[in-house]
Write a protein that binds this DNA or RNA. Structure first.
Lengths: 182, 182
DNA sequence: TAGGCCATGTAACCGGTTACATGATTAG
DNA sequence: CTAATCATGTAACCGGTTACATGGCCTA
């Protein structure tokens, strides 16, 4: 999916500024859709406005920078629906952690251990974040994808914890095997 | 991860041509790491050879195009290990299907149904493929990531099947609601 | 007073993809 | 005869990111 569609999808749930869209696309469940930076969001919003998919108005509060608040138009909503009605692209899953896991035998045990710990921490954070954001919303679609995400990550974590020893044992024993694994 | 590292990782398990690397990165478990096209693989291989991370020799068989077969060198192996010893980047998961799910209420029931069916089919194919490739290999690291992938996808599929009706009910009733959901 | 947050925007760059050029063999 | 598969490689393009410019407010 491209930045265009991301902007339309976010604005479909309410008006927002470019800055807010960037934050949402990094910190909220919108991160499931695309990565986006300021350098791509601002130009995309301008273009969408020129095309009539968005409108904007400026909000000025003394002592704060002017905010350019965008709202979606009927035309924008139409483009969003039309995009979603196409057969969706395959889900993408890319993992550097799995590369390390596959190559465990080449690596020191300590390296593998760190990578696993790191991945577990990430999953735990992710689970906490999904739970929080699901509790905060009343929107059914958002709740549904939160439930889906939670189930997937939870099982991923479970598998990792149950099978980490097997993976660690593939790695090369490193010199400092004196300390316990904690 | 970049194409460079992908090439090194694949060649670490045995020599191969650019053409074979491309196929592996699209059709095998190497697809978990990066997407790659010919246009990126061939230049990457040339550069790696110049830098001394790879060597190559030509194989000529009558009636077949010449194959340029690459092998990894100690220097290449060192770069691969060094890359993997860095803290890995976060796993990436991007899903157009989840966008459709989140916006189910805007879409026709038929559209949502198709998206779910499509996703289920993909997951089933993926599971079958993982099972096959796990059975074919003796390599422990590869078996481990296959097990991990299988567990994740299996649970994803389970959740989808158990919760699809809830999602479909969020969508707008379309005109042809006469036929049963099969 | 340094750094982080709010807020918008541009320009250079880059890591890729797409499409093209080339050509032989094999399967339908 | 056509399409697919094997096989290598280049060039144009593009969708992004990174870094920069700007500036005020708030917190540690």
């Amino acid at each position: 999916m491209n930045i265009r569609t991301l902007c339309l999808a976010i604005l479909n749930f309410g008006q927002a500024t470019g800055y807010e869209i960037k934050k949402m696309s990094s910190d909220t469940h919108y991160a499931y859709f695309v990565d986006a930076s300021f350098g791509s969001i601002y130009p995309a919003l301008s273009k969408l406005e020129v095309e009539g998919c968005l409108t904007s108005h400026e909000e000025r509060e003394p002592g704060k920078p002017a905010r350019k608040v965008y709202s979606i138009t009927d035309k924008g909503r139409l483009e969003l629906v039309s995009h979603m009605s196409d057969t969706p692209k395959k889900d993408i899953f890319k993992s550097e952690f799995l590369l390390i896991a596959m190559c465990a035998e080449m690596l020191e045990r300590e390296t593998v251990r760190k990578a696993i710990d790191n991945r577990i921490l990430q999953l735990e954070e992710e689970l906490k974040f999904i739970k929080d954001s699901s509790d905060e919303t009343e929107h059914e679609g958002t709740k549904w994808i939160a439930g889906y995400g939670y189930a997937c990550q939870e099982n991923s974590l479970k598998y990792l914890i149950e099978n980490r020893e097997k993976l660690e044992s593939l790695a090369q024993a490193s010199s400092q095997e004196l300390e316990p694994a904690e």
